[in-house]
C-alpha cells in the first residue's frame, strides 16, 4: 500500500475502531478515552497555530476555558440547555475573542507573541478567579448536560456515557478531516508559507496579517469546541481550565506528538493523557506517583532532545525505511 492510500484510509479505520470502544462497557476507560479525544481536538487546534502558521501561542487555554464558562453561564441554572444554540454561541464568543486579541497580539513576533498571548489568557483567568462572574475560584457546576433533541426526539443523550463518547468521537474526526482539508487548500498552503518565510510571502503579495488572523480565529473556535465538550463531560468549570498550566499542557501535547502534523497532535494528546494516568498511578509508582509531573517533564525533555519531530516523526522513520528499500530494489 502506498503512502497516499495509507493516509487516505488509515484515519477512517482508526475512527471505526474507536467507534467500537464503548462496546467494552468499561465506564472508566470510556470516560478516559472521551477525555483523550477532547484533548486531541484541543491539541489539533493549537497545532494549527504552532505547527502550521508559525505562531507559538502560550495562551490557548483562554479559548478552552472561555467556551466552558460560556456554556455554564448561558444555560438555565438547573435545567438542560440546548446544544443547538449553546455550542455555536460558545464558539462564536471564542472567535470574537480571537479576532479582538488577534488584532493586537499578531503585531508581535517570537518571544513577545508568547508573552502577549499568555497575558491575555491570564487576564481571563483573573477575571474568572477574582470576580463573582463565574463563581470565583470555586467555579460553577453544570447540573444538566446540554440536550441534542430534534423536535420531541432525543437525537443524542449526552447523559449516557457511550452516546457522549460517540458524539465526541464524531467531533474529533470532523475536526481532523476539516483541518486536513483546509491545510491542503490554497489557504492552508499560504499559512505554511507564512510559517516558513513570512517576509517572502509578504513580498509575493500575500496580506499576511489577514491570513494569520483567520488562522487564529479558527484555532480559537476549535479550542473552544474542546473546552465546551470538556465542560459537558466534567459537569463543572473552574478557573484552572483557563490557567497557564492548561496552555502549557496542550503545548506539550503538540511537542510530544510532533508539530506540524495533525495525527501528531492526536498522538500527543493520547500519549500525554495516558502517561499522566500511568505515572500518577499510586499502585504502580507509590510515593513517586504524587510527583508524576517530574517524570513527565523529564520525558518531554527527552522527546525535545531526541525526537524533534515528536511521536509522528518516530512513526515516519519506521515507515520510510521499507519504502526506500523497495524503491532501491526496483531501480536495481
Amino acid at each position: 500500500m502506498n503512502h497516499g492510500a495509507l493516509s487516505r484510509w488509515l484515519p477512517w479505520v482508526v475512527v471505526g475502531l474507536f467507534a467500537l470502544f464503548p462496546l467494552l462497557e468499561s465506564t472508566f476507560y470510556t470516560q478516559l478515552v472521551t477525555k483523550v479525544l477532547i484533548m486531541a481536538i484541543f491539541a489539533m487546534s493549537l497545532d494549527l497555530l504552532v505547527g502550521y502558521t508559525g505562531l507559538v501561542s502560550f495562551g490557548h487555554a483562554a479559548y478552552f476555558g472561555l467556551a466552558g464558562y460560556a456554556l455554564a453561564l448561558m444555560g438555565p441554572k438547573y435545567e438542560a440547555a440546548s446544544l443547538w444554540w449553546t455550542l455555536p454561541a460558545s464558539l462564536g464568543i471564542c472567535v470574537v475573542f480571537a479576532l479582538v486579541t488577534g488584532l493586537l497580539v499578531l503585531r508581535t513576533r517570537g518571544i513577545y507573541f508568547i508573552m502577549v498571548t499568555l497575558a491575555f489568557a491570564q487576564m481571563l483567568f483573573f477575571i474568572f478567579h477574582d470576580t463573582k462572574l463565574g463563581g470565583g475560584s470555586d467555579g460553577i457546576y453544570i447540573y444538566a448536560k446540554p440536550t441534542m433533541n430534534l423536535g420531541e426526539t432525543v437525537l443524542v443523550n449526552l447523559e449516557k456515557l457511550d452516546q457522549f463518547y460517540w458524539l465526541v468521537l464524531a467531533f474529533t474526526a470532523a475536526s481532523f478531516f476539516l483541518l486536513r482539508r483546509i491545510l491542503g487548500s490554497s489557504f492552508g498552503r499560504t499559512l505554511v508559507g507564512i510559517k516558513v518565510n513570512e517576509h517572502r510571502m509578504r513580498a509575493l503579495g500575500f496580506p499576511v496579517f489577514r491570513y494569520q488572523l483567520a488562522s487564529f480565529a479558527l484555532a480559537g473556535a476549535l479550542g473552544g469546541l474542546a473546552g465546551y465538550l470538556a465542560a459537558v463531560q466534567f459537569g463543572f468549570v473552574n478557573p484552572e481550565i483557563l490557567s497557564w498550566h492548561q496552555s502549557g499542557m496542550v503545548l506539550m501535547m503538540v511537542i510530544l506528538g510532533g508539530m506540524g502534523t495533525l495525527h501528531g497532535a492526536v498522538l500527543g494528546a493520547f500519549a500525554f493523557v495516558l502517561l499522566q494516568e500511568v505515572l500518577s498511578n499510586q499502585a504502580w509508582f507509590g510515593v513517586a506517583a504524587k510527583h508524576w509531573q517530574l517524570a513527565m517533564g523529564i520525558l518531554i525533555m527527552l522527546v525535545a532532545l531526541y525526537l524533534p519531530q515528536g511521536l509522528a516523526g518516530l512513526m515516519n522513520s519506521f515507515r520510510r525505511k521499507p519504502q526506500v528499500e523497495a524503491e532501491e530494489g526496483a531501480d536495481g
Partner: peptide, 11 residues
C-alpha cells in the same frame, strides 16, 4: 484561490 476547501493544486 483563498477558497478553503478545494485542493491547492486544483487550479
Amino acid at each position: 484561490a483563498t477558497r478553503v476547501f478545494s485542493r491547492a493544486e486544483g487550479y
